[in-house]
């Protein structure tokens, strides 16, 4: 269970929130002029990022406001919450080196259970 820092209500348990999908996907306005493929891109296609991902949450039991959140999906680290309409802040994240890889720490997955020699040398 995460703690999510609602921009209106402050830090609350994840059980109060509803996930609401990828952020920053604006609904097209001139839909009549769009091709099927363009429209399908809006309706169906999402990026499924491993790494830093902007997503929307809804504080269902509290203020009932939607807001944006920057989460590292590789580690579940929450880097920022910001309001609808705002641009995502710049953050430094512990990202996977490759799309199929692991963040250096935080996923608990096999590849990063044990410190590397470089990490040992640095510590």
């Amino acid at each position: 269970m995460f703690v999510i820092d609602c921009p209106n209500c402050g830090p609350r348990d994840q059980s109060e929130f509803t996930y609401a999908g990828e952020a920053h996907i604006a609904r097209p306005t001139e839909t009549e002029n769009m091709t099927d493929a363009e429209w399908a891109e809006f309706v169906f296609m999402r990026t499924n990022t491993k790494g830093l991902f902007a997503e929307r949450w809804w504080h269902a039991t509290g203020c009932r406001k939607f807001f944006n959140m920057l989460r590292n999906t590789a580690t579940d680290e929450i880097h920022a919450v910001y309001r609808i309409g705002e641009t995502p802040p710049k953050v430094t994240a512990n990202l996977p080196a490759t799309p199929a890889g692991e963040a250096s720490i935080g996923s608990g997955n096999d590849a990063v259970k044990i410190m590397t020699r470089d990490e040992e040398a640095a510590s």
């Binding site: 209500c9 609350r12 059980s15 109060e16 039991t61 509290g62 203020c63």
Partner: peptide, 10 residues
């Protein structure tokens, strides 16, 4: 004031 869940109740 807080809007929250109490068990399964809102």
């Amino acid at each position: 004031v807080a809007g929250t869940t109490f068990g399964h109740a809102l």
